[in-house]
Design a protein around this nucleic acid. Structure first.
Length: 275
DNA sequence: CTCAGAACCTGGAGGC
DNA sequence: TGCCTCCAGGTTCTGA
């Protein structure tokens, strides 16, 4: 679930369903998921009595604004927030449970246990977000900013799109989709892209990310989305998961290769190195 | 400093 | 059915 459009969808769901929830008690069953900043002594103690004001997003991070603390939360591969309507049995993949004053629970569920929730005092908010060293959002970055950032690296364009210090929020699915839209081969050296190609890339990022947010993100495989919301952008994917199928633009066959250890889908005819 | 590769975890899919 | 290998929407650590 977790690239920018999916995280944005989770954020909107939490703001719709969880604003004003008040925490009575906390249970953590996999301690590595929860971290606290040096100023705090105990997560459970810090969270008791906290009311959720709202949730923001920066890149793929969720920022929870509680009354006295903030959370910087990353879902990584499979993290989900759930707010079950009825008291459901807690399964073995649920690692954090906030027992609420209204009788419900806010649960964090994560099969692979990769996700993280870091808790800070509220006054540390700006410093905590700055310490993430995130690049600009893909809907806001300019071609010129991309061009300048790419001059400083010897890497291929694909790993640059995944580097959160350069642009914050793009993951493996949208990187492939953006490169297809821009007709750029994923192994092209980023430093070799022209300024015009960087402008094209910035435009493709804005269009694709905006559209994916409108569609509620992308749901692939059998993951069920948090808060009952499934994405629909999977119906509009042009290359991701489409190896062996015809390219929507030129009808040649989509290929899958490895670039910087990540599965990478592209059209070898309309995405060529040096074009 | 930069970059490639491993590590962190678990489950599903496919080969034998 | 069982066992093995590989793969997965991400980040962070290690070491060259």
């Amino acid at each position: 679930m977790p690239e920018l459009p999916e995280v944005e969808t989770v954020k909107r769901g939490l703001n719709r369903l969880a604003q004003g929830i008040c925490v009575k008690d906390v249970t953590v069953t996999w301690p590595a998921i929860v971290q606290i900043s040096d100023e705090l002594t105990d997560f459970r103690q810090a969270m008791r009595g906290q009311t959720l004001q709202d949730v923001e997003r920066r890149g793929k991070f969720l920022i929870f604004n509680w009354s006295d603390v903030i959370w910087v939360s990353h879902l990584r591969m499979e993290g989900k927030y759930l707010l079950p309507e009825h008291k459901e049995v807690v399964d073995k993949y649920t690692h954090v449970i906030l027992e609420l004053e209204d009788g419900r629970d806010l649960r964090y569920r994560d099969v692979r246990k990769f996700g993280r929730i870091k808790c800070y005092p509220k006054q540390q908010k700006e410093a905590a977000i700055n310490a993430l060293h995130l690049g600009p959002e893909p809907q806001e970055v300019t071609g010129e900013e991309l061009f300048n950032a790419f001059q400083r690296t010897k890497r291929a364009i694909k790993p640059c799109l995944l580097d959160q210090h350069i642009i914050a929020g793009i993951g493996n699915i949208y990187a492939d989709e953006i490169l297809w839209e821009s007709q750029i081969h994923p192994e092209t050296l980023a430093a070799n892209l022209s300024e015009a190609q960087c402008v094209q890339l910035a435009a493709a990022m804005a269009t694709i990310i905006k559209r994916a947010i409108e569609k509620g993100g992308t749901t692939v495989r059998t993951y069920t989305n948090a808060l009952g919301e499934n994405g629909h952008y999977q119906d509009e994917l042009k290359v991701y998961g489409r190896e062996g199928l015809p390219c929507a633009r030129c009808h040649n066959t989509i290929e899958k290769i490895k670039v910087a250890q990540r599965g990478t889908h592209f059209c070898p005819y309309c995405q060529r190195i040096g074009e």
